[in-house]
């Protein structure tokens, strides 16, 4: 196996990075991929909570890097999906506990272990962010349809371009089609017009996301949830399948236009 290493980042905080990592990990594992997630948000870990693995933590990523345990010992196996693992962040350490080269080495060791390594990045463009993207083959930028979030995503994309990380792809999270229709929310077209990068998925606003996160069972498990479906579709696209975009609002014609825009008709 040679894993694809994918980092999920955003610029602005609270837009849904951790939610995306947890759901994509579950969705990829449901598709039969072997997945290892790394919580790169040192000092503010919460991927373990969303995946419902909080009380299984013994070792964390800093323990691996500082040689206090072997890599396999820090990989927590999921309760339901035997091919899904989490390497949790250290809660009590700060972001300076890891360097970019240590992160690159860790990722290199994981490549032979699985199909996908998903790295959850902290918000911002500081050290934690730089560590999280250091070993990535591909970067997904999460944003919300809000001016400030899009502005920060733009900044991050500019930095990724200069780091020659290859073109980033966009996850537009928390879209509310009714608000777009009444022109009270930026449309996917507005966002793409500005950011001008590939769109890999649109995730609707969905209260089930919050309910599921609190239960420690990401919404990607729920067959009926719109957000869950959107995350499952993104996972398929990451696996190289072509999946049409969800028709979140059949009447508006928005989704047809969008599919034209992204060439995924």
């Amino acid at each position: 196996m040679t894993a694809k290493v994918i980092t999920i980042t955003s610029g602005k905080g609270g837009v849904g990075k951790t939610t995306a990592v947890a759901n994509l990990a579950v969705a990829l594992a449901l598709e039969g991929s072997k997945v290892v997630c790394i919580d790169g948000d040192i000092g503010l870990r919460n991927l373990d909570v969303i995946l419902g693995l909080e009380n299984r933590i013994v070792y964390d990523v800093v323990d691996v890097i500082e040689g206090r345990c072997r890599l396999k010992q820090a990989m927590i196996r999921d309760k339901k999906l035997p091919e899904l693992y989490l390497i949790p962040a250290a809660q009590t350490r700060d972001k300076n506990a890891i360097s970019a080269s240590e992160m690159i080495r860790l990722v290199k060791d994981l490549r032979s272990e699985c199909d996908f390594v998903l790295i959850d990045s902290p918000a911002g463009i500081e050290r934690g962010f730089r560590n999280a993207i250091a070993g990535a083959d591909r970067v997904l930028v999460v944003t919300n349809p809000e001016i400030s979030a899009v502005r920060d995503a733009d900044r991050v994309i500019g930095i990724l371009e200069s780091e020659e990380k290859g073109p980033a792809a966009l996850i537009l999270n928390r879209l509310n089609p009714a608000l777009v229709k009444s022109k009270d929310m930026l449309s996917p077209e507005d966002v793409l017009d500005l950011l001008a990068i590939e769109l890999i998925g649109i995730v609707p606003e969905d209260e089930n996301v919050i309910i599921a996160s609190n239960r420690g069972a990401p919404v990607a498990y729920e067959p009926k949830s719109r957000a869950g479906q959107a995350f499952r579709n993104i996972a398929k696209r990451l696996r190289g399948e072509t999946v049409p975009f969800l028709d979140l609002d059949a009447q508006s014609g928005l989704w047809n236009r969008l599919q034209r825009l992204t060439g995924r008709k």
């Binding site: 502005r151 733009d154 900044r155 994309i157 500019g158 371009e161 500005l194 001008a196």
Partner: peptide, 25 residues
């Protein structure tokens, strides 16, 4: 020959020509 994204600042003692967009920020 590129888009100037948010956070970029270009200061120059002559003319500036951009083949691309200049984004907000």
């Amino acid at each position: 020959n590129r888009t100037l994204r948010s956070g970029t600042r270009v200061e120059f003692s002559g003319h500036v020509i951009v083949l691309g967009d200049v984004n907000p920020g």
